[in-house]
């Protein structure tokens, strides 16, 4: 399975990761080689085998939804490099709609 630099750039764009053309070239090469290697799985017959997901518990463990303490505004101030605005007690981002 080969992925080209163009496809890699498109993938990165969807994942909101800015890549340089040089990075796209390099990652395309790396990913293609890993995807080629992964083909080894096709040697195994998995017809009718259920996929195994997360965890060993037979069923999802649920718990009561008990209201607890929220983070204090003073806790939030330590969280962010700038998005948290204590005056408004909100995370402030640029407008999504103009």
């Amino acid at each position: 399975m080969q992925i080209g630099p163009e496809e890699t750039l498109r993938l990165a764009e969807m994942l909101r990761i800015r890549l340089s053309p040089d990075e796209a070239e390099r990652f395309a090469r790396d990913m293609s080689s890993v995807l080629d290697y992964v083909e080894v799985l096709n040697r195994l017959d998995t017809q009718g085998v259920d996929p195994l997901g997360v965890g060993l518990n037979k069923e999802a463990l649920l718990r009561e939804d008990v209201p607890g303490d929220s983070l204090a505004p003073s806790d939030l101030e330590s969280l962010s490099g700038g998005a948290y605005d204590p005056a408004r007690n909100a995370f402030v981002v640029q407008p999504v709609f103009e």
Partner: peptide, 8 residues
């Protein structure tokens, strides 16, 4: 496929 192999 990988999740099925995991089951095996």
């Amino acid at each position: 496929k990988a999740s099925q192999v995991r089951h095996l």
